[in-house]
Design a protein around this nucleic acid. Structure first.
Length: 107
DNA sequence: AGTCGAGCGCGCA
DNA sequence: TGCGCGCTCGACT
């Protein structure tokens, strides 16, 4: 299905994120040359492989965790991010800006 | 500074 | 066929 292009691209981008780093839906959507920020989040929610797809490394533009539908919810997402070396407090990433990973979009 | 609405792309009813 | 969603930004108040 070619319609998976967007969806697949979003997931593919996640694989580019190194461990200990995070990105935002905005960066992904922007990297895809699209304005479907919501579509990106939706792609994560409907990702075909939530395990192979580090969707937990994707957070909101404010550094907040946002939501998570995979395991126990945000709890697991935070835990995973913490395990990756990120500082999270009150469901929000502390050094988010320092760990924010950006894609090579015509830098 | 805070609140509201619009916009994207796919999935499901 | 139509609406909602793991969102974001811009504009108005």
């Amino acid at each position: 299905m070619k319609k998976d292009n967007f969806n697949q691209k979003c997931l593919n981008k996640l694989h580019l994120i190194p461990k200990g780093m995070v990105t935002t839906y905005f960066e992904i959507a922007n990297s895809l040359n699209s304005k479907g920020y919501r579509a990106v989040g939706n792609a994560m929610a409907n990702n075909p492989h939530p395990i192979t797809t580090p969707c937990h490394r994707v957070v909101r533009s404010d550094g907040t965790i946002g939501e998570y539908s995979y395991s126990s919810g945000i709890k697991t997402k935070i835990k995973l991010l913490k395990e990756e070396g990120l500082l999270i407090q009150n469901n929000k990433i502390i050094n988010f800006k320092s760990k924010l990973f950006k894609f090579n979009s015509t830098s």
